[in-house]
Design a protein around this nucleic acid. Structure first.
Lengths: 123, 123
DNA sequence: ACGATATATGAAGATTTTTTCATATAAGAG
DNA sequence: CTCTTATATGAAAAAATCTTCATATATCGT
């Protein structure tokens, strides 16, 4: 199986592919937070947040810094903002129905429109 | 649990979080291919490729077009190239050891360097 | 209509990932 | 040193996802 990018990408994307971790990333856009704050804000157990912070930090999507007893986690905006931006652009264009991607039927309909040359430029 | 972006992002990233699907996306960077070609090139069963093409198309990471009996799948470069670009940038900067993100030890060492102000700009 | 080719689908078993709970570690306050 | 607070860790159960195999569908050429 041919794998160059794909092999190295897997860890990157699988770390992002989790609702809790995405919620953490989103929360950290507002600024650094400690574990307890994150857990409280997201209404999740502290251990669950810790478990999920680990892969995020390992992938360097977040950074951590000790502040007395607590650990402050902050977003790697350099990486995450472009990622979110691409996602938002994509979902506005291709998944207009509230983030959920198109259903098979909608996709077919869209394809029909595409074929009539009105909406998309083909690649 | 606070969820805005996070909720809608999950489908996007979980679709990318699979080695077979990533290999398909990478392969399609070279140009459109049909299912059998993809399966042969990646040395995977045809049914496996079909199963994996479905979520990729649903998310609009790929497009499909009928060409006689075969289905030609092509990459949504508009979305995928920026995503790959961000990934490559990120992994070069933060995961220098061939795509694998840093280990805990390496991370600690890097953090030490960070603290001494030589490598990263903090966010 | 028939056979061959191309692709899709369903469902089960296998595998991976997540969640939870109990507990460990670590550091500051007194 | 002990108590408290903050965070991390391990392991088992639960849940989600993948893989595989058998089979269905669809189209083309004859």
């Amino acid at each position: 199986m041919k794998r160059n990018l794909s092999e190295t990408c897997y860890d990157f994307f699988s770390t992002l592919a989790n609702p809790t971790r995405l919620a953490v990333l989103e929360l950290l856009r507002d600024g650094p937070k400690n574990v307890t704050d994150i857990a409280n804000t997201l209404n999740q157990e502290q251990s669950m947040i810790s478990h999920n912070l680990k892969p995020l930090e390992r992938c360097r999507f977040i950074f951590s810094e000790r502040r007395k007893k607590e650990h402050l986690y902050s977003l790697n905006k350099e990486t995450m903002e472009p990622i979110f931006k691409t996602f938002v652009y994509h979902s506005k264009k291709y998944c207009p129905t509230r983030g959920k991607c198109l259903t098979a039927d909608q996709l077919r309909e869209q394809k029909r429109k595409d074929a009539s040359g009105t909406i998309f430029v083909t690649h």
